[in-house]
Amino acid sequence: MDWSLILTNALTAMVGLDTVIFALAAIGLNVHFGYTGLLNFGQAAFLAVAGYGLAISVAEFELPTLVGVAVGLLGAVVLALLLGAPTLRLRADYLAIVTIAAAEIVRLLFRSVSLSEYTGGSDGLGRFAEGFYSINPLGPGEYGLGPLEFDERQTWVLSVGWTLIGLSCLLVFLLMRSPWGRVLKAIREDEDAVRSLGKNVFSYKLQSLVLGGVLGCLAGFMTAWGRAVVQPDNFSTDTTFYAYTIVILGGAARVFGPVVGAAIFWALLSLTDNILTQAKSAGYISDSILTTFQIGQVRIMLVGLGLMALMIFRPQGLFGDRRELALDAR
């Protein structure tokens, strides 16, 4: 067993593309779920709309990358308004059902054969990321960070990604210590009380939905650029579920919670993956128990078990404060 390789891979995963994408998606979800108490189960749709908005604009209509980004952002805002305007006046579980249904509709539409002229169907779209990579200031070569090494494209993607994460966290930090953020947190506790104090609860919930959606949309851009291809199945409901796991892992309603959660989440997955793979090739695990192909399934099971265990034993997240949670009325 090559432990140094296993650890290097885990470290790489902590700063890698998946961590970047899911940290951004979870930062947005944290605004919804952690701060405002909105049950958005369609975060994947915001990623999809952004990723496809960018890809279709650039690949099909040959528009500049910046216009593609604008289209993606606009798409996320419109989606948030469409989802929120009708449902945010209803009971909380309705938002959950409508968002999860909407996310599935979005995925099926992008997947559909009828629209494949624009979306590429289930194969998805490529040939749109060159504009992003052409402004890479780094020359060809390997760039290292301690034991980690990335080529110039990966380094560029990750630099942009982590910059976006930094900016997003700063934005959430500034907003959540402002009176605006105070209203959101109050809505999470009891929206009638907030209403009785003269605040337009509906408007704040909608603002929260838009803000979290736009942050999620950054994750969509990073998915598109990082993989240089957008595929409908990158934006399945499981993406949203993983983001929930990450929010809860890092601790809901904490500024850096989603980032820490994402890093730990992907490091753990990398560790299990690598340890099992190496144990297999070293012959420690026989095929009757686990074939190489089944390692991925063990991963999914671990995510599920982890999410259950967290919610039951440490719902405040790994670093949360249990006392605060004891006050949770929900």
Partner: peptide, 24 residues
């Protein structure tokens, strides 16, 4: 006395786990 939203998240974990198990 676990809250309903917490339990909802637990069902998501259970669903992921079982689906992984079925696939396995």
């Amino acid at each position: 006395g676990t809250g309903l939203i917490a339990m909802l998240v637990v069902t998501i974990g259970l669903a992921l786990f079982l689906r992984g198990l079925f696939l396995y």
